[in-house]
Design a protein around this nucleic acid. Structure first.
Lengths: 69, 69
DNA sequence: TATATTTGCACCCAAAAGGGTATAAAATGA
DNA sequence: TCATTTTATACCCTTTTGGGTGCAAATATA
């Protein structure tokens, strides 16, 4: 589970659309879309704005890890 | 342990200076410094370039977690 | 004490992010 | 099937990043 799928899965689990998530997180709609599509060069602070809605944050995880899901 | 301290600690554990780490990771020295100082708006791909030297990558971790160390 | 390392600050600059918007495509539901 | 919702892609624009560099001060380290 990478960050992109993590966000997508979490968003769907709380029944939010991308525009709704963007609004709640205080980021742009385009950012949510690029994030869920796996864009690598996103900004860390924006990612954290999204993750904290789900009670998560960006951290270092072992490369072999499946991260949280 | 936040990302900044994680990188700093890992770097010191393998006895690298900031310039050496920057060179190995393929990022600028200024980036390493800003990362270790906790700058929030860094780019995720650059963070990953650094973390993978230590066998780690960026992932979602619970907010209450101490992340990996 | 010296030496090496780290930090902080300031420039300049090219490249990219991210926001907004509009349109096209895909998915979902009646 | 058709209509609606959701998602994806493209274009502008402004702001910021990140790299390079230099220098001074603070902090370790031998």
């Amino acid at each position: 589970m990478n960050l992109a799928n993590f966000v997508k899965t979490k968003r769907k689990s709380v029944k939010l659309t991308q525009p709704e998530l963007a609004e709640k997180a205080g980021v742009g709609l385009r950012f949510i879309r690029e994030l869920e599509q796996g864009k690598q060069s996103v900004r860390l602070d924006k990612v954290n704005q999204v993750l904290q809605l789900f009670g998560y944050q960006v951290g270092a995880v072992p490369q072999t890890s499946n991260q949280q899901s």
